[in-house]
Each structure stands twice: as C-alpha cells, then as structure tokens.
Write a protein that binds this DNA or RNA. Structure first.
Lengths: 220, 220
DNA sequence: ATAAATTTTTAGCCTCGACTAAAAAATATT
DNA sequence: AATATTTTTTAGTCGAGGCTAAAAATTTAT
C-alpha cells in the first residue's frame, strides 16, 4: 500500500518517540512533533490504524505495528543517508541538514536509496551519530558509542573510556562516573557542545565536549 | 510567494510546451502532460493567473509571465541537475532517471542545488542533451548540438558535421541533408536509437544513431 | 471521593487539487 | 451561413489533511 508524505511523517515521528520509551505514545506528543493540533492527530491515528500500521485505542495512545515500524525504519534510513550525503558530499555542516533531509526522506525509489548507500560506503551512523538501518530495516549494533555522539534523552550505560590518563579518570571519579553508571544526556549546548548529563537519575551535571567524546556508552 | 508541488508542475509543463511553439498553450495540451482533466487545468490556470505567474484569458490559452518563467526555469534547472547526478554519480542509465528527477525537482533548497551544481562541475546539459539553466535562470547558448542529442519535435537547422569522411558526406547528400536544412526529429526508436527525421518539412526518413551523432545542429 | 484540570475525541468547517456532467464558446464542415 | 464537432469553462462533488469549539474521558488535586 502506498504511503503519503503525511503518513510517512506520522509513522516516523511515532517511531522516534518510541525510541525513548516503552510506553504508548500520547496524541499530544505526536501533535507537538508534527506541528499540528491534537484533533488532527486523532484523525490521522484512526486512518493509520485502519491501514494496519499502528495499534490505536481511543484515549490509550498509539504504538507502531511491525508493518508500521518497517515503513518508519525505511523513512529513517532515507533521512539519515541523505544527511550523510549532505554533509560528506555537499559540504553542509551537521546542523544545516535536517530540514533538507526532511524533504529528501520522502523520495520514493528503492533503487536510488540503495545506490546512495553504496556511494556513501554503507555508513553506520548519520552525522549526528544516529544509526542508519540497513536495507532490510535492521539497525546496526553500535556496540560502543561516544557520549558526545548521543542524542538528548536517550538512556545509556557507561561501558568504558577512550583515554585512560590519570587526570582524566580522576575527573570521572569526581563526577561520580564509573563503569555501569546509567546516563542520560539532558541537554546539548550548541555553543561549546558541552552536555548536561544526569548520572544514575541524579540532577544533571555539566560535562565538556572534550570529556564526553572520551566516554564510551551502550544504548538502552 | 511559496509554490506548491502542483503549481510547480503546471509551470514546468507550460514552459516545456512553450519551448516548441510561439503560440499560446491550450488547456488540453496542459491536461495531457499533467495527466489531469481539462476542467482541473482551467481551475489551476485561474489560480496561477491570480498569482501573476501566467497570462490567461478564458478560451485563449496560456503563457508564462516573466515571473512564472523564472519559477519554471528553476524547476527545470533542478530537474536536469538531479538527472546528471543520477546518471553520473548514482550509475543510473539515461532512461531510468526521469521519474526520480520528477520528485527531486521539488526539493526546496537554493543552497543544495547550487552545491549540487558545483559537485557536478557545472554541467551545461542533462543526460538527454537538454540545456541546464544557470543559477540566474539563464540557459547556456549551446551553439552546436548533436542531432542525436535532440528531443522529439524540436525545430532545428543543420549547421555542420562532426566527421568529414567522404562516405559520410555522400550519405548525407543522398539523404538530402545539406547545410541550412531545416530538421525535426519526429521519433526516437529506443531499440537502436535511430531517429526518424523530417527534412525541410518532408515526410520523415530514418537515420541511424551513428549518423545522427555526427550531425551538428542549432536549435530554433 | 469529588472536584478541578488536563487530555483526547467528536462535530463541523476549510482549502487544495482532483473529478464528472452539463453548458458555452470556438472551430470545422457542408 | 447554418450546423456539427471539438474545446473549454462552469457547477457541483469528493478525499486528504488540516483547523476550531465543544464534549467526553482521564488524570490530578483537594
């Protein structure tokens, strides 16, 4: 079944919201990200449910079905591959590409996206560090990710460090950062790329980009 | 003023039709190329006229205004640059790219299209030999074009040959092809790329691709 | 446990861009 | 010149995807 531009956007946004929680996604949350009103979202969710792409019960929120997730992943794949293209080949900065990729992600051509993937040398992540699903819709296992590449509000666990100099490890200790610590990036400050991180659900503390890029973490 | 997907398509198609005639473009001609019905075209022409992009009087056909032509040229520029990209960088064949370019031509980003132009080394023509407007919307003067690169139903004049071997010129003479002859390609046969050409308004004759690609012509 | 506040849904309406059927204008034919 | 044919426009309708205002359900607070 063909998917419209609008449908693809809804599925993508529900997917994104599902990444950071196991709960059902609320109508309002979707409305905020789609830049529409709750009433419009309700309409669309009913339509998506009819097509079998989401499970939706009134007042109960929404979740993607397996089929819906497949479509969402293909949109996400296209979005992220185009972002790599824009940065690596077109020379855009990482902060300029989102809006353009929002348009390019709806171009319909399996052949094109697979050729693009090859042209870009099958990248595993986009310029923001988000993983790119392969053509089967499978997200690559990113065993280790740098804390500096993590998005806001993603749960993760500290798995190691990329530098083991004494002063660096002393700093980590002082910040209460130890192996196995549960981390969540609450805020990324564009000015100096410093991050505000909650450690084991505590109040967030500031960590410089220099430190963050030497911390290895595992998602989830 | 922002242009919708549909509006851009109409302007582009009116532009294409205007290329091969000086007369006003008929509602039916537009309907055929947009794959819509005449009634729908009438509606849209009224809207385009209101926005100042076409001159339109009921029953009199339509022409682009200067502003309308500017928009059309920017869509054509995008379409043709993306076609070059698809063939040169993505490895598509010249006959596979039209549908994908029909989608890509509506991506809205001046910055992207100019970077793409640069990435492709400022090509003058697309893979089908059509000229690519520059960023000011000016079509390059293609002083000489190969007959083999010409589209169907474009008037042109024989301006020279790319090969001057005796047997080649003898063949041209036999076909009544001489300098200054008025030519129009009536049909391109995909099988062997041979062309059926009307010479000085005569009944069309068949010319092989091998011959056509050695004939230099001037448009118009 | 009730009342208050918030979230979600319903109902009705709007614009865009298409459609069909019928009317009107333009063009072609005798 | 009158009639037949073709082209174009008008009138009315439809679906997609939005909106607002009001109603209903859920959640939070007292």
């Amino acid at each position: 079944m063909a998917t419209s531009f609008a449908e693809e956007n809804y599925l993508k946004i529900i997917y994104r919201l599902s990444e950071s929680t196991l709960e059902d996604i609320s109508t309002n949350a979707v409305a905020e990200l789609t830049q529409t009103k709750a009433a419009s979202v309700t309409d669309m969710l009913r339509k998506l449910a009819e097509k079998g792409w989401v499970n939706y019960q009134k007042y109960q929120g929404v979740r993607l079905t397996e089929e819906g997730e497949k479509i969402a992943l293909s949109v996400v794949r296209k979005h992220r591959l185009w972002e790599v293209f824009l940065v690596e080949k077109m020379g855009f900065n990482w902060d300029e590409v989102h809006e353009i990729a929002e348009q390019l992600e709806h171009i319909e051509s399996e052949a094109l996206i697979n050729k693009l993937d090859e042209f870009l040398d099958f990248p595993k992540t986009d310029p923001h560090g988000d993983p790119i699903p392969n053509k089967e819709g499978i997200l690559p296992e990113l065993s280790y990710v740098l804390l500096s590449d993590l998005k806001e509000n993603k749960a993760c666990v500290l798995m190691g460090v990329a530098k083991d100099s004494a002063i660096f490890l002393q700093l980590l200790t002082r910040l209460n950062l130890s192996l196995g610590a549960k981390l969540m990036v609450k805020e990324i400050n564009p000015f100096d790329r410093s991050v505000s991180v909650s450690i084991n659900d505590s109040e967030p503390v500031f960590i410089s980009h220099e430190v963050a890029k030497n911390i290895l973490i595992k998602l989830g």
